[in-house]
Write a protein that binds this DNA or RNA. Structure first.
Lengths: 135, 135
DNA sequence: AAAACTGTAACAATTTTTGGTACAGTATTT
DNA sequence: AAATACTGTACCAAAAATTGTTACAGTTTT
């Protein structure tokens, strides 16, 4: 993955966990991450779709965790920021070549099992675990 | 990873394994993958740096595996095409925020252990294993 | 009604990735 | 030694992905 979205999402969730008692605004969060508030709102848009964050509109509104940090695995976070296989995409190879003709199905299998193994691994860690490092 | 290089590299290695008896040209390989020969040569440049492929210049030259397919793990292939962490990059957060100040070291730990777990997993599969699917 | 927020669209800017051309260098063949 | 058929790599172009920005309608509180 050559983007910064996982780091951003986990940063957001960590801030929410460490400030459970209040709603945090996109501006506050953006200030901590050092990015644009609209980017924060867009990222949270995905996190909310998965139930990881809840939001409150209007004055005094903002964001909070959508469920206990102990129930949010890093695999959930990963899913919210990425749909592509870890191992990347495939080519569109030459169907007249025996290898070219078959490789994409074998790659698809491989990509799927690699993803599964990885998600299982990072699924062992929760946002609570991660947040506890900030003490 | 949002690129196609792993698929390309594994395709190359598979072709070389299934045609052990001869040197394959970049043009032949490119024809199978359906990409530009120069892209193949560039990709092989990395694979060769790791000893996974050997090349022969001049007329009649081309490429062959640099070691037995049974000794080339998919983690080696992955390393040749990617240096970034699986979980992506970090931001450059606000040092005046307690979370912003610390998060990158915690992320670095997390990224490193996630990479290690993943590489260990795909390290169990070799190019030989993968190539055997093409029968 | 004013203020302070979110939600999202639309677009711009930047960065990464891929593709393509060109050509010097090398080994083989005749 | 000349022709041929390759690799190696630099350099640039094109395309795609990512990130940043502005704007503003909608919502809730005061």
């Amino acid at each position: 993955m050559s983007n910064v979205r996982f780091a951003t999402a986990l940063h957001i969730l960590t801030l929410l966990e460490l400030n459970r008692e209040q709603f945090l605004s996109s501006e506050f969060i953006a200030g901590s991450i050092n990015i644009n508030p609209a980017v924060v709102r867009k990222e949270i848009s995905n996190l909310r779709a998965l139930g990881l964050v809840e939001s409150k509109e209007g004055k005094g509104g903002g964001y909070a965790l959508g469920k206990p940090a102990s129930k949010i695995a890093l695999s959930d976070v990963y899913r919210s920021v990425n749909d592509l296989p870890l191992l990347g995409r495939s080519n569109t190879p030459n169907p007249n070549c025996p290898v070219g003709r078959q490789i994409n199905v074998h790659l698809a299998d491989l990509f799927a099992s690699a993803d599964t193994a990885f998600l299982k691994e990072i699924g062992k860690i929760t946002v609570e675990d991660f947040s506890k490092k900030f003490r």
